[in-house]
Design a protein around this nucleic acid. Sequence first.
RNA 1: GCCGGUGUAGCUCAGACUGGCUAGAGCGAUUCCUUCGUAAGGAAUAGGUCGAGGGUUCAAAUCCCUCCACCGGCUCCA
Length: 620
Amino acid sequence: MDCGMRLLFIHSDHLEFEAREKAGPDSLAETEGVPMEGRMEECVTAFISVESDDEEDVEGVVENALTELRDVTGQLNTQNVVLYPYAHLSEDLASPDAAKQVMQDLETELEAESYEVLRAPFGWYKSFEVSCKGHPLSELSRHVAHHRDEEKDEEELDREPSDWKVMHPGGETDDAVTAKADTSEDMQAFIEDEVEDVVASPGEEPPHLQIMKEKELVGYDDLSDVGNLRFYPRGKLIRDALMDYVNDLVVDYGGMPVETPIMYDLGARCIDEHAGKFGERQYRFESGDRRMMLRFAACFGQFSIMRDMHISENDLPLRIYEMSTYSFRREQKGEVTGLKRLRAFTMPDMHTATGDMDQAREELMKQAKLALQTSEDLDINYEPAIRMTREFYEENEAWVEEVVDELGKSALLEIIPERHHYWSAKIDFAAIDGLGRPIENPTVQIDVESAERFDIEYTDGTDQHHPPILHYSPSGGIERVMAALLEQTATMDTPQLPTWLSPTQVRFIPVRPDQHTDYCDELADDLEAADIRVDIDDRDESVGKRIAGAETDWVPYYIIVGGDEIEGETLGVNVRADDEELDMTPAELKETVREDIADLPQQARYLPRYVSDHPNFTGN
RNA sequence: GCCGGUGUAGCUCAGACUGGCUAGAGCGAUUCCUUCGUAAGGAAUAGGUCGAGGGUUCAAAUCCCUCCACCGGCUCCA
């Protein structure tokens, strides 16, 4: 959000004002210590509004405003300043008392620095005349946040750097940079990015951006906000298949699906406090006279369910799950890219209430292993990072070793000197994109604060307890999974998606559409009965051109069908994955495709059976 | 959010520095011809508020200002 004191500077030949009548109750208007009229020559006039959030730190905002004033007067080479309260600059005014205080403090401070100051009274309708010099710097506006810069620096300095290690299965542990050479290529890239602050392939655009456009998967929409995407049928199919996959996985594990609201009332203390931890990265809006926010994950709704439940010890671990379409994070504009970083995205989100830290650790381990299962099913390599406070690490070192053993691969350890988030330990998994940069996907964390904040309790029959709660996303955001999948294709000799995610799984190309399409239809009917997505390229184009089309559409299996096939027993099946043509009977083809899909979810086709009926969504 | 780059036909791009004929090309689309056996057959036609708004000028896609979007870097990623 765009908050904080607003300043409009006018470099003036002169400024003159006169108070006319009080702009509110008597108590509001300033009458002492300020002139009711005044004039100053050759000055900088500062029109000022103090914003409501400045009240949190009046001294801070005064200090920062002074910095701006020194800067501006320095540039304009003048020591004459008019301080002019100007409420109309504001979006959300501070209380009059706070505003008056700020104005008075500014005057005092400036005078102490031997400025000539003229201050106009607060709380009056005033007539004024200003003569702007009109040179390029004569009109300047500034926003001032209430956090003091030094304070911010101090806070950051206070945060001692993390300690980075790599732990191998078996428990061997080294400093991360030292261990780098002995790790996989992806882990090396991960360490360089996380620990050494190296930007991989600087200046390059991640390959998935082009692919998502070229393949008519996903696009931008000018009519929405930045980072809110639209999905064309092919992209929508991939997205839906991934969501089904994750839903099945989590429900099978024991997550109980729910659906909760996407907006929450900031008037509720628990919401306001929790939301406050995310600073300005929220969509906020007013609905009637309530201040609302859009959720950034499913935490609020699920915590709210848990709060209202009567949870018995026997219900634990209690796992509540939701595919949060959508979650919203108002990321800074410059941070939003493609499918990797969005303002509206879909996150599978499960919260698990556990009985105690022992059970929390046990669950964390299981859920982390389940996340690695997605790595296998989706064919995306993930590198794990275990992040925890020093305290947690020292108390649980043996357990951390056990986790790394269970995961069966080396993990990056981040040891954080002090807890400054709601979690004390978390594991996340990063895919490495085509440029060598991490995409953080699955994550599971132990939350040690929220149960108390949201008043979540379970009973052991006699006593009430606050459960440690795990936050879990088994796959990470669906869009990020798509990003990782597409990035992966960019490194392949024959770029392709897994069969179960291919919008078209089998394509028939009739040599002469007018003569051979009927037979293709028969073949297609048969495959469709086995839930395979088939289409027929019946366009009146050369065979060569339609083959090219099947290749650029990344169709895993395509078959030219002419007289030979109609008369013969077998089909010449082009298998893109192996880059070869195999003779198969229709039954063998069906079996081969079904084997690829195995028990992964399968949607029906989203585009018409005949390629001649496929509309162009983006013009490619 | 800050700094830099980019924005021209549905898509990919030329033209911009140095203002000046009717803003071009390839792909795609439409129509016609071709009836084709493993990566793009031929021809014709249509298609443009040159990102939006303002300004300078006799004249602006081209120069200036503001805004928007995309890309990169910073920051950020609970």
